[in-house]
């Protein structure tokens, strides 16, 4: 039987149909400095060009054998389009991701102008998806991601206003969260309409390092439910940091798959969610791909698989300055050790 293409593998994986092997992919940034260097550009240049975004994603997948490509790489595209600006650190040494320099200083100031969704770099990201869907079509799965409404909120307004406001100024915070939720839905639907293969909603700033489970249920869950109600499958919910206390709440949001970072106890999580939900996670990308010796990487991947994931995902964007031999160890170990069925996805 002919091997599946990466795209077929990922599509079947999310439909929970049998696949030939565990796909090696992510719902977060997979760009590598090796791809950037091969293109002869600097990291700071990649974010503002549809062509650079698409080519760097495909070159990274070509170099290391990933099953997917995914863009954009920075978390500022929507905030920038909303008028908050972006700093790309053109003259910084090494890799530095863009940030949002100008946040609204009060909830009352937050106003989204008509047509914001077509401003700044938003059209370039859409163009990058179009290039990927055309040129990587049939070869790589094309992944997309959006920030969750709370995390997006933290990009456009001082986070402490939001956190304190949740207790002191609930009505205005809820109105703000509604605005952010509408924005997330609009953008995610646009990417889905282009034909991306999966959509990851990264509510990364909402873990229990910051919020109590009680506040998560009140401030985060209703908005995520609304988002997942509106989006097509496959759709994934990813949260970084402390998540053990909110696994059940996350599982009630309506996503097809849950993704966690390295702080999550995957064995316990699998028990809580059962075998019908796709579980993704959860190696520490910086430690595993940039720090460890390559010989130590297979044990990390095997531990994730043994803990019950359906695909081994990094806990966050991979740090672009990876050791190539470590990435090779990630890919090879998952291909080999992931031949057996996982709890939610069988094998052909």
């Amino acid at each position: 039987m002919a091997a599946m293409t990466p795209r077929e593998r990922v599509q079947k994986f999310f439909r929970r149909e049998p696949v030939d092997a565990m796909p090696v992919f992510s719902g977060m940034g997979l760009v590598t400095i090796q791809a950037i260097n091969k293109m002869g550009i600097r990291f700071a240049q990649v974010h503002g060009s549809a062509d650079y975004l698409a080519r760097s994603a495909m070159t990274s997948a070509d170099l290391f054998g990933f099953d997917s490509v995914i863009v954009p790489y920075d978390m500022c595209t929507m905030a920038e389009a909303m008028g908050r600006g972006v700093t790309v650190y053109e003259n910084a040494e090494g890799v530095l991701y863009p940030t949002v320099p100008d946040k609204w200083t009060s909830l009352d100031d937050v106003k989204l102008e008509e047509g914001w969704i077509d401003k700044a770099r938003m059209p370039k990201v859409e163009e990058a998806f179009k290039i990927l869907l055309k040129e990587a079509n049939g070869k790589y799965a094309v992944g997309a991601w959006v920030l969750g409404p709370f995390t997006l909120g933290g990009q456009v307004i001082e986070l402490d206003l939001l956190l304190k406001g949740a207790a002191r100024d609930r009505a205005r915070v809820e109105a703000f969260m509604d605005k952010m939720t509408d924005a997330v839905i609009d953008v995610a639907k646009r990417y889905q309409a282009l034909g991306v293969d999966y959509m990851n909603v990264r509510e990364m700033g909402s873990g229990t390092d910051l919020l109590s489970p009680r506040m998560w249920k009140q401030l985060i869950q209703p908005y995520l439910k609304r988002i997942f109600d509106e989006l097509k499958s496959p759709k994934i919910l990813h949260i970084c940091g402390g998540t053990d206390l909110i696994v059940d709440l996350m599982n009630d949001c309506g996503a097809d798959a849950l993704s966690f970072d390295q702080k999550n106890n995957l064995v316990e999580t699998r028990k809580k969610i059962g075998n019908d939900v796709i579980l993704l996670g959860n190696f520490d990308p910086w430690d595993t791909l940039c720090q460890k010796e390559a010989a130590d990487v297979p044990a990390v991947m095997k531990a994730c698989i043994d803990a019950g994931v359906d695909a081994v995902w990094p806990g966050c964007d991979i740090w672009p300055e990876v050791k190539p031999e470590n990435v090779a160890a990630w890919v090879n170990t998952v291909r080999e050790y992931g031949k057996k069925p996982s709890p939610a996805v069988g094998r052909i």
């Binding site: 956190l163 949740a166 207790a167 229990t208 109590s212 506040m215």
Partner: peptide, 11 residues
């Protein structure tokens, strides 16, 4: 004791 989280600490 996980009675307070960051929002409470900020206040």
């Amino acid at each position: 004791r996980q009675e307070y989280f960051v929002p409470e600490i900020l206040m």
